[in-house]
C-alpha cells in the first residue's frame, strides 16, 4: 500500500503558485526525502496533505484514505512536525504533551517520558521560556509520542545541535525499522543522502525527479579535481569550475576520452575523479530546467 499518493495535486494561493500537478508516490515503510529550496512548495504539499489548506485541483490519498474526506482518520495515524514549533503561551512542556495526547484521545505518557529522556527535554519548563531548539524537541515528542504509522517532518533538524540531530535520526530509523513510513522534507541534502532510501525533488511547485537516492546521485557527471597547469575551460561538458590553490575542481558530463586526451597534454601533479554528492546533483536539477549546461 502507498503511504502517500497524490494525483495531479495543485494548489494556487489566489494567483500565486503553490504546487502544480504534483504526482507523488511514497510506498508504506519507506524513508522518503522531499528536497527543494525555500518556496519550492514543500510545505504547501504537506499542508495540503494534512488538510490545513484545501487543494485547487487534483487529489491525494494517505494509506488509501482521501485527504479531504477522511482528514480526521488520516491525522489519527500521522505524526506531523512543523518547521516552526509554536505552542500556546503559559503552558508547561508536560501540559503541551498531555494536550496533544488528549486531542488524540490516547494515553502516551510512557512513550513521551522515553522520548523526553532521549532528547534531554525538561518537561517542567514553560514553553515560552524554551530556546528554539528545545521547542523543536517538544514538537518532536508531540509528533512521535502516539507512535504514528506515517511521520511527516518539515525541516526537522533546524535548531537542533549535531548531537541531538544524531539522536533524532536514530529514533527515526528505529521507527522506520518498526514499520513506520517517514516523509522527510528538507533542504539539507546531506541528511537526506544519509538517511533516505528514496527522494523526490521539487522545483517551483513541480516535481522534477523522484527516484532512489542512489539513482538520483548517479548521473553521468563526475566531480574532477586536478592540480597542475591546465586549460579545460573550452572543453565541452565542463561546468561549475571552482578554482583551487594550484588547480581546479569541476563537474564533467561530456566525453571522458576527450577529457583524458586534454589532461594528457597538461602537466598535472594530482588528479581525482569522484561521484558528485547530492548537493551537486541538486544544483544540477536547479540549473535552468534541470538541463545540463
Amino acid at each position: 500500500m502507498d503511504a502517500i499518493k497524490t494525483t495531479g495535486l495543485t494548489k494556487y494561493y489566489g494567483k500565486a503558485r503553490g504546487i502544480i500537478d504534483l504526482n507523488l508516490c511514497v510506498p508504506e515503510g519507506e524513508f522518503f526525502g522531499f528536497i527543494g529550496p525555500n518556496g519550492a512548495g514543500k510545505s504547501t504539499t504537506i499542508r495540503t496533505l494534512l488538510g490545513l489548506i484545501s487543494p485547487s485541483g487534483g487529489s491525494g490519498e494517505i494509506f488509501g484514505m482521501n485527504m479531504v474526506k477522511d482528514r480526521q482518520k488520516i491525522l489519527d495515524c500521522v505524526g506531523y512536525l512543523p518547521s516552526e514549533a509554536v505552542f500556546y503561551q503559559d503552558m508547561r512542556v508536560r501540559d503541551v504533551l498531555k494536550l496533544s495526547a488528549g486531542l488524540r484521545k490516547k494515553d502516551c505518557r510512557e512513550e513521551a517520558a522515553r522520548l523526553c529522556e532521549r532528547l534531554e527535554l525538561d518537561t517542567s519548563r514553560k514553553v515560552d521560556e524554551l530556546s528554539f531548539g528545545n521547542r523543536k524537541k517538544v514538537a518532536i515528542v508531540c509528533a512521535l509520542q502516539h507512535r504514528p504509522r506515517l511521520l511527516v517532518l518539515d525541516e526537522p533538524t533546524s535548531g537542533l545541535d549535531p548531537l541531538m540531530q544524531r539522536e533524532f535520526f536514530s529514533i527515526l530509523r528505529e521507527r522506520n525499522q518498526e514499520g513506520a513510513t517517514v516523509f522527510l522534507s528538507s533542504h539539507v541534502l546531506s541528511e537526506i543522502q544519509r538517511n533516505c532510501r528514496r527522494a523526490a525533488i521539487i522545483r517551483e511547485g513541480r516535481l522534477i525527479a523522484c527516484d532512489s537516492v542512489e539513482a538520483l546521485s548517479k548521473t553521468n557527471a563526475k566531480r574532477v579535481t586536478v592540480h597542475g597547469e591546465l586549460d579545460i575551460e573550452k572543453l565541452p561538458g565542463v561546468r561549475d569550475i571552482q578554482p583551487l590553490d594550484g588547480g581546479a575542481s569541476f563537474l564533467f558530463g561530456g566525453d571522458i576520452n576527450a577529457l583524458v586526451n586534454k589532461l594528457a597534454a597538461c602537466r598535472l601533479t594530482d588528479l581525482s575523479v569522484a561521484e558528485p554528492d547530492l548537493e551537486e546533483i541538486f544544483l544540477h536539477y536547479y540549473t535552468e530546467g534541470g538541463e545540463t549546461k
Binding site: 480526521q72 489519527d76 512543523p82 509554536v86 500556546y88 496533544s100
Partner: peptide, 14 residues
C-alpha cells in the same frame, strides 16, 4: 495570529 492553528489542526479533531 499566534500561529498555534497548525499545532491544533494537525491533530485528529474536525
Amino acid at each position: 495570529k499566534e500561529r498555534t492553528a497548525e499545532f491544533l489542526l494537525s491533530h485528529p479533531v474536525s
